[in-house]
Write a protein that binds this DNA or RNA. Sequence first.
DNA 1: TCGTCTGGCTAACCGC
DNA 2: GCGGTTAGCCAGACGA
Lengths: 92, 92, 92, 92
Amino acid sequence: MADTAATPSPDQSDAIGSAAREQLKQFVARIERLEEEKAGIAADIKEVYAEAKSFGYDTKVLRKVISIRKQDRHEREEQEALLELYLGAVGE
Amino acid sequence: MADTAATPSPDQSDAIGSAAREQLKQFVARIERLEEEKAGIAADIKEVYAEAKSFGYDTKVLRKVISIRKQDRHEREEQEALLELYLGAVGE
Amino acid sequence: MADTAATPSPDQSDAIGSAAREQLKQFVARIERLEEEKAGIAADIKEVYAEAKSFGYDTKVLRKVISIRKQDRHEREEQEALLELYLGAVGE
Amino acid sequence: MADTAATPSPDQSDAIGSAAREQLKQFVARIERLEEEKAGIAADIKEVYAEAKSFGYDTKVLRKVISIRKQDRHEREEQEALLELYLGAVGE
DNA sequence: TCGTCTGGCTAACCGC
DNA sequence: GCGGTTAGCCAGACGA
């Protein structure tokens, strides 16, 4: 057992120090908080699609539109990055 | 065809009215906004993992912990749902 | 069209050799056979639910029970996996 | 074990009789057995795809082939059903 | 950097 | 016909 004499750690395997455990808990809490937010937003998105559907739009098509626009954006960014590269190459 | 005479629609197939197009654009904008937020949060999460890693934590284990805790929560919810079902089944 | 005169391949594009085609057919046959079995079992399951229903059980509840038990099993496995991870992390 | 002497329903909510509980357990067992088989076959299918892949086949295409053939079969069956219908209508 | 693999999303199935 | 559920697909993250 790693835990000797005076350590107060009352329970749990004390393979790691209590400070470390506290820190770990902090990390877990932060991540879970963010995951929760992310899930909330995902739910919002779902809602918007549902609303669009209730207005008679085909969600499948709508999703496709979003996806294509995202791809376009991505391409644009890549092209800009490429441009940067060129400019950098020339500049040096 | 809905599009008659005096409509100004300058380009694009006018299979749908301009009001509808406007509405559609609104939906697209809302969704893209939310997607952006979601992506931002995902990036934050990634950062937290990176930070934890820099403190010497094994991200694989950390991810597993998060995952199991999520499952636990989910399971709790399911059990409550089951209880509801039972009560409902008995009540009727 | 690639298929000219003297080739033995009687029809089809011969982009792939006949041996390969034979092999491919074998794979397709094996998969379809298994899919058939799977569908059969799915049908059996459906039947069991129907039978249970005819005995007055609420299939929705029954499904939930099955689902929760599955999750329990899964969770057990995950916890063991986590333990393994911990042990591995400590051992190194 | 909790089941002692004279109490007929020793534990659990006795909202339902022990005979019913026994029967319910049977249903659960049968379903779980079948689900297990199904999962086994699903695993087999996965293996076949993996094997095909190791022979250089594109699993995505292969899946598409399987899917199209299934649709064809389905259509055929529908047409036959339609034919039956016609024949029946004429016969009467 | 590439291959592997898990997690999220999409599409089909089933029951209501 | 719709909503819920489940299997399949895919992209993103980790390890070699």
